[in-house]
Computed example of a mutant assay.
Amino acid sequence: MEARALLAMVAVASAATNLASANLALVGPYTADMLELSACDDGEYQGILINISQIVDEKTNETTNTGAITLHYDIFADDFEMELTVYKWGSTGGWYKDYSLQFDKPFEYLKSNFPTVFETVFVDIGFKEKPVSPGTYYIDRLMPRGFRLKRFDLLPYGKYKLYLKGLKDGKAVTCIMTICTVNEAEYTKGVGLKSLF
């Protein structure tokens, strides 16, 4: 009798697990939140000095980034290249490489392909136009939340670490890292039948 009861309990638990996991969405409409903005944790870079701290904003009671970034290069120069590497937090722990992209003419590329990031991060830091003069740029309470990328209607949910490296003559001389989450959000726009076919 005990064996039957144990078998029945295992069957019920298995069915409940299948029902629960069937409703988990892996990708879809989203909002993104920045969790951290900092120096890259994979080495030192001679062209940039990042001194950013996370503080709690007294008005909103939320964590924000405050500090300074000192540049020794014009990161938007036409002869500068950028490399974006994205890591995703795995379901069993640890970061794995998810995506990599290298592009030249960083000002034009970022402004046209990632306008939301350009407006909510780069402009707030002070990198509004080219050239970006070498010098120190101050950050005050920078922590974008609930944003969406204009060219991406759907994204996989999860936690991501992004490295944005500046390359001069093929060598990485600047790097800034951010950690963000992509969270499920209700899709308000809708998808028309014509767009599916």
Rank of each mutant, 00 (worst) to 15 (best):
E108A: 13
G28K: 04
L110N: 04
L142N: 05
S14T: 10
Y138M: 07
I69L: 04
F80K: 14
T63R: 00
E58L: 15
G158N: 03
A77V: 01
V27H: 14
E62M: 14
P29L: 12
S100Y: 04
R148H: 01
L162E: 11
P156A: 15
S112L: 06
K111R: 07
S21D: 02
A16N: 01
H72M: 03
C175G: 05
G47N: 10
G43P: 08
I139Y: 05
Y45R: 14
N113I: 02
E129T: 05
I52L: 06
P106G: 09
F197C: 08
T120I: 06
M143H: 06
P131T: 10
G43Y: 07
V10D: 15
F197G: 15
G158Q: 03
P115Q: 11
Y96L: 11
L155Y: 10
G166L: 04
G93N: 05
M82H: 06
A68T: 12
G190W: 02
V123Q: 15
G90C: 14
V132M: 05
Y163L: 06
T85G: 11
A32I: 08
P134K: 00
N65Y: 01
Y163C: 07
M143R: 05
V117R: 00
L24E: 09
K105N: 08
T92F: 08
A185K: 13
D74T: 03
I48Q: 03
A3H: 12
L193D: 08
F103L: 02
D57N: 07
T31R: 01
N18M: 03
V123A: 06
F107Y: 07
T17Y: 15
G192A: 01
T116A: 04
L35T: 12
P29W: 09
V12Y: 07
G190Q: 13
L71T: 09
S112I: 09
F103Q: 07
P144S: 12
V173K: 00
T181R: 06
D153Y: 07
